[in-house]
């Protein structure tokens, strides 16, 4: 079966993907202003400081918004529809949001602000991907 595309790590984003393979969310935290940022960036989005540290953050958050995808536009989606793509507001910082897929639930179970937690699932190429499930 076709699969969703495999992520090709950007130069500078490798620690995030390595973290996934270790089962943790690892984000950049600015050494100057202490803000976490996402997507990975070569300089602080908030203060332009260059120094940062990759830090493991809690894999919990709430659903900021979502869509139930019913029309497969990619070969990898055939046989997977319907599936739920979510934007997660991570608990680690109020304005930190990432895109992922919600698993282990039916589309009609999804509600705004529902608490979620990360669960890792391997892409067929071996890279672990951070997916989320409802915290029940």
């Amino acid at each position: 079966m076709s699969t969703f595309p495999r992520p090709v790590p950007e130069y500078g984003s490798e620690p995030f993907w390595a973290g996934c393979n270790e089962g943790v969310l690892r984000f950049q935290r600015c050494a100057a202003c202490q803000k976490l940022r996402w997507h990975p960036a070569p300089i602080c989005t908030y203060c332009q400081a260059e120094d940062c540290a990759w830090e493991t953050i809690p894999g919990t958050g709430r659903i900021h918004t979502w869509t139930v995808i019913t029309h497969p536009v990619h070969p990898g989606a055939v046989g997977k529809v319907p599936y739920v793509v979510v934007e997660i507001a991570l608990d680690a910082q109020s304005d930190l949001r990432m895109i992922s897929r919600l698993v282990e639930c039916e589309p009609d179970e999804v509600t705004m602000a529902a608490p979620v937690e990360v669960v890792f699932e391997a892409h067929p190429d071996g890279q672990q991907l951070p997916l989320f499930r409802l915290r029940r």
């Binding site: 595309p5 992520p7 950007e10 997507h39 995808i69 997977k80 793509v85 895109i99």
Partner: peptide, 13 residues
Amino acid sequence: TAAGPMSYLAPYG
């Protein structure tokens, strides 16, 4: 494959 900003979107569908 998905590179750049799409690497944070397309792998999830």
